[in-house]
């Protein structure tokens, strides 16, 4: 669990409901422990991105992802994994071949809740908070969910991203999907 800023405790609680152990990564030393997957939580991408760079975590984590570490980014995490952010010159881990749009639904008044299908699963709750969406994906990216024609969940091999926050609802679908990725599915 990347725990630089944002809603990481909510993800930890979801994992513990699935009987999965987690620990928090704040500094380079934390990477010495062994782990099967990484979650990059929601929060502010500018804050997390800056702390990633200055803590020296950016390059080692980038390498781990390129080497195949199962990684799940929600909201700000999606932006940190994006190769391109359309309305922001900054890029961070840039490991996933997608172009995203930051604050794509506007300010807090644009935040919303809906239910849509995720892959083959119907009616998954989706909470969008000042959320991004994905504008373009390369051929190697599988689109897992769309809302009103906008891509809001996708997977590229070991990387999973959602523009919404599955950690804010009780539904464990998405976290179960990710833990399955971690055990090699």
């Amino acid at each position: 669990m990347l725990a630089l800023q944002g809603a990481f405790i909510e993800h930890e609680e979801m994992l513990s409901k699935l009987g999965v152990e987690s620990f928090e990564i704040r500094q380079k030393n934390d990477l010495l422990r062994s782990f099967d997957g990484l979650i990059i939580p929601g929060g502010e991408s500018t804050v997390q991105g800056k702390l990633l760079k200055e803590s020296g975590l950016l390059e080692p984590i980038r390498q781990l992802i390129l080497d195949g570490l199962p990684t799940f980014g929600t909201c700000a995490g999606l932006l940190l994994l994006s190769k391109r952010i359309e309305n922001d010159a900054r890029s961070y881990l840039a490991t996933m071949d997608i172009t995203s749009v930051r604050n794509a639904y506007g300010r807090q008044l644009g935040s919303f809740y809906t239910e849509e299908s995720f892959g083959s699963i119907d009616k998954v709750p989706m909470t969008f908070i000042r959320a991004p969406y994905i504008k373009e994906v390369s051929d190697s990216v599988e689109i897992l969910a769309t809302v009103d024609g906008k891509i809001v969940a996708a997977r590229q091999e070991n990387q999973l991203v959602t523009a919404f926050h599955p950690e804010l609802n009780d539904d464990l679908t998405i976290h179960r999907y990710f833990t399955n990725m971690c055990s090699g599915e």
Binding site: A3, L4, Q5, G6, A7, F8, I9, E10, G42, G43, E44, V47, C75, A76, Q108, S111, F112, Y113, T114, T127, I129, R130, H165, L168
Partner: peptide, 19 residues
């Protein structure tokens, strides 16, 4: 679409945590 504004507003505060 049913939505609970108050919950979405609490959720934004959750995103600010640790900041």
């Amino acid at each position: 679409m049913s939505e609970n504004r108050y919950e979405l507003n609490e959720n934004l505060a959750q995103m600010l945590k640790g900041g």
